[in-house]
Design a protein around this nucleic acid. Structure first.
Lengths: 351, 351
DNA sequence: CTGAAAGCGCTTACAG
DNA sequence: CTGAAAGCGCTTACAG
């Protein structure tokens, strides 16, 4: 394995200059830098991470703690994010180490991991409302970035999407099609994103002058069977009014809703409109659902590169409150949404 | 952060002696070692991994490459193994870095990872028959351990279970209950474990003097829907003979089989016996299935500690051919297996 | 724009 | 049984 010294003797330069040239220091002359780079590739130089880390005082390791849940495997999102995030961090010379937690204390596993490993920082996932982790880590001076947003005006680094707008956009579309009885199958209530979406849903309904009957906001694991069970309950009409449109937290949930509607002989979008938020998970093609699914669209893995870069910037001294991005999901209208059935129009459109 | 030097000045010893005491070198006196250990805990000493790695010439990082498959998320095994393995490696001061591969070349991603990262070794998962990876890595002198077994008499380190015995034990149990028409829903044919199980199945059937009709060995993703669909095809009787017993590759597959049997109004084990291999995944309780499921039982995650230890031993110079373990799955008989239905007995038991 | 030198925190022959 | 010393391969003030 070639070292800086190999390059420096090869070129008759000092290791200091070689190091500076390779690390893009501005004071190095253009010709010198070119010679160094040529020699580095020719000799197959790769920096020794351990030496870099020892010299800079960084460990090059960031942690992520995963809460073990029974339905973990049903949650396709975790794997997608994990693998993309690993790659994005690796591209920035950071290793991601995982730790699995089974307990109820939200911060104890972070404490343990800090005691056990030398860490440069954390990636926080699955934020909950008023998440205690940011306060805990800040008190200890440990850098972190959050995937999602757990507080109204965070002073920490995070990347998320506008979850209120996700539901508001969906409601607006459906209301413009005349729908009045719109129901929501949300994510699990304990997560911050689900709270935001419910607020966005209720606010948008209010703006449209539409009521949200009791029971029209449900929640659950983001699975096909959640969608099937809930849709069957609503659409069979046994329990109060039937929605003419259903918003789904994920595309698997929508798959369940579509199956329930088909089982009941409903046509879509004739009898029922369906819309879902689409995380763009690998292997799921909402455009090929039957009918093709209207979605709000925001690939989960698009968060990974920004998160990795924010963490690097944070480690390099950027103030975390500057490292905040909120993306807006796109709206893709397909065949699963259409005009409200005759006779079911929103109040002021009925005669 | 306390360093070796802090301890040495504290005790008036040299850093060399402190290092030896902490690393368990035999030549250190018992009293000295005790004093060093006391001071280390008192000062909260934790070794600097980067310095250790630089001094020893090891990176402390091992790689694992994950093939991205569309049905990945349906495969509950990956997450279970990943998290346990990470923990077991961390306990031995090794970081696991993941790389996701989407291509078809089985060794190219290893080549790329070796070029990009300084790695001490690899963990190989999902072995296929005649897997080319061991040969590739050995030619490059890269240490590795395999989870599973891809060759008949491997000269490399691996941990697996006796997959032939898994099916043989199941067949033996069913044959002893009088079953003659036994079918197998195997794992995906491309994996080595599935090949081994099919061989074990056919060999055991031959030993019992039982025929395996065409179509009685099926395979597929380890999901509930695989089990449901296949069982429905067999049990509806539309396609040739009906099995009186079904072996399932996993417990989710068995769930599908049980559902199909219930949908057809079959009683279990009266009309149908079901047995599965149980990887003991979190959140799945075959003892609580209806009926309680008879299984061969071998927790997948039990492989992780041995794999981590083998890799460490290998890195420390142990000959890999000595680092081989094959566990035998246990047999747990519950309510889903019983005597063959009257009139369906194996040939020499019929009048 | 470049170099000589110190230092990051360990490990490990070599001596005694 | 213990210590002095060199070395792992980088980075980065400090000088010029």
């Amino acid at each position: 394995m070639a070292t800086l010294k190999d390059i420096s003797t090869e070129l008759g330069l000092s290791v200091a200059t070689v190091s500076r040239a390779l690390n893009g220091f501005p004071e190095v002359g253009a010709r010198t830098r070119a010679r160094v780079q040529e020699a580095a590739t020719r000799l197959g130089y790769r920096p020794n991470r351990s030496a870099q880390r020892l010299a800079t005082g960084r460990s090059g390791v960031v942690g992520m703690i995963v809460k073990l849940r029974a339905d973990m495997s049903a949650d396709q999102t975790f794997f997608d994010v994990l693998t993309t995030l690993t790659a994005e961090l690796a591209a920035r010379d950071l290793d991601l180490v995982l730790s699995v937690d089974q307990g109820n204390d939200p911060v104890a596993p972070y404490e343990r991991m800090l005691e056990r490993d030398l860490l440069d920082g954390f990636v926080l996932n699955a934020p909950v409302p008023n998440d205690p982790r940011p306060g805990f880590l800040r008190a200890r001076g440990v850098p972190f970035v959050m995937h999602g947003q757990a507080h109204a005006a965070p002073d920490y680094a995070f990347f998320g999407i506008d979850n209120r707008a996700v539901c508001a956009d969906a409601v607006e579309l459906l209301a413009s099609l005349g729908h009045a009885r719109i129901a929501l199958i949300n994510g699990e209530a304990r997560f911050a994103f689900a709270e935001d979406r419910e607020q966005g849903f209720r606010a948008a309904m209010a703006v449209e002058g539409l009521a949200v009957p009791d029971g029209f906001v449900a929640g659950g694991a983001p699975t096909e069977s959640t969608g099937y069970t809930q849709a069957l309950a609503w659409l069979s009409g046994r329990a109060g009014p039937r929605p003419t449109a259903i918003l789904c937290a994920t595309t698997p949930v929508a798959q369940g809703v579509l199956r329930a509607a088909r089982d009941l002989g409903l046509s879509m979008p004739g009898d029922l409109s369906v819309i879902a938020h689409d995380d763009a998970l690998p292997g799921i093609r909402p455009a090929h659902f039957n009918p093709a699914l209207t979605v709000t669209h925001a690939p989960l893995r698009d968060a990974c590169a920004p998160l990795a870069q924010m963490l690097v910037d944070h480690l390099n001294g950027a103030p975390p409150a500057r490292l905040q991005t909120v993306n807006r999901a796109g709206l893709i209208v397909r065949a699963s949404t259409g005009p409200v059935p005759k006779g079911e129009e929103r109040p002021w459109q009925t005669p």
